[in-house]
């Protein structure tokens, strides 16, 4: 018998991902897939892919999947979850998708307390379209549409989605985690697992924001990009559990 120290999870397909070297989307995919395997729900899961770098995530998750239009993943998730309340349904969305064009859908799905899991990948930029300013881009951050750096007088301050989501009464769980170090990645998995366990136990809407790197979009080498998460993003986007349990009267 061989003892395996590490094995690819059956929550992922064998397809090679298209992500840029250094991007943490791949790590986040693996964490989600491992959790699905750990909970033994791969065969009953429906993944909702969004529009962004992760648009093809349906090729990587070894589950039935629906590819949604830009920002509408929570509405699509609502539709299929209402048909199959016993299946596990999750959305996988970037910050442009969730915190800009899809704000209405994410807030409204949370408002209804849909029993779904939301994986929110915050890389502070529009990766897929070539590095434009996102609602989560930091003050001073240079992007192709904020060439002088994000100016809060013109673009306002970056949106803090966990803080916003935790104000919504019917939301069960809100947590912000990161991918900048092995420890952070292990902690991220704990939060993701909790978010899926909640759904399985019918506890309701669970939201995990994952700080993620876009070394290409940020114009940094991969290791520097991870350091940038640690030194710049976490101070503005503090990690931790923002909500655990609905506010019911």
């Amino acid at each position: 018998m061989t003892d395996f120290l590490f094995q690819k999870t059956n929550g992922l397909t064998d397809k090679q991902t298209h992500y840029c070297p250094g991007c943490t989307h791949g790590i986040i995919h693996r964490l989600v897939a491992e959790v699905l395997e750990d909970l033994n729900v791969v065969e009953e899961t429906i993944a909702i892919a969004s529009v962004g770098c992760s648009v093809l995530s349906y090729e990587y998750f070894n589950t039935d999947s629906i590819q949604a239009s830009h920002g509408r993943a929570p509405a699509v998730a609502t539709g299929i979850k209402r048909v199959f309340p016993n299946q596990i349904v999750f959305t996988y969305q970037g910050d442009g998708d969730l915190a800009s064009i899809g704000l209405a859908e994410i807030i409204a799905a949370a408002g209804r307390g849909e029993n779904i899991t939301v994986i929110f990948v915050n890389n502070a930029i529009y990766g897929m379209t070539g590095g434009q300013m996102a609602p989560t881009s930091l003050v001073g951050q240079k992007t192709s549409t904020s060439p002088l750096g994000r100016n809060p007088l013109l673009a306002g301050m970056p949106l803090k989605m966990c803080e916003i989501m935790s104000q919504i009464p019917s939301v069960e769980y809100v947590s912000r985690v990161s991918t900048h170090s092995p420890l952070a990645i292990r902690q991220a998995k704990v939060a993701i697992k909790k978010a899926f366990e909640n759904q399985r136990a019918n506890r309701g809407f669970s939201f995990v924001e994952i700080l993620s790197s876009c070394n290409i979009g940020w114009g940094l080498p991969p290791v520097e990009a991870l350091k940038w998460i640690e030194s710049r993003m976490i101070s503005y986007y503090p990690l931790g559990v923002y909500k655990d349990g609905k506010d019911l009267e």
């Binding site: 909702i48 509405a75 699509v76 609502t78 048909v83 409204a108 209804r112």
Partner: peptide, 26 residues
Amino acid sequence: GVFVQAESETAAINMVYGAASSGRRV
């Protein structure tokens, strides 16, 4: 059956998209 009052017509048709993926009538 299921009735959901969506947050907008955009959301409603996307809920239809999600639910119709099941092959059921929507």
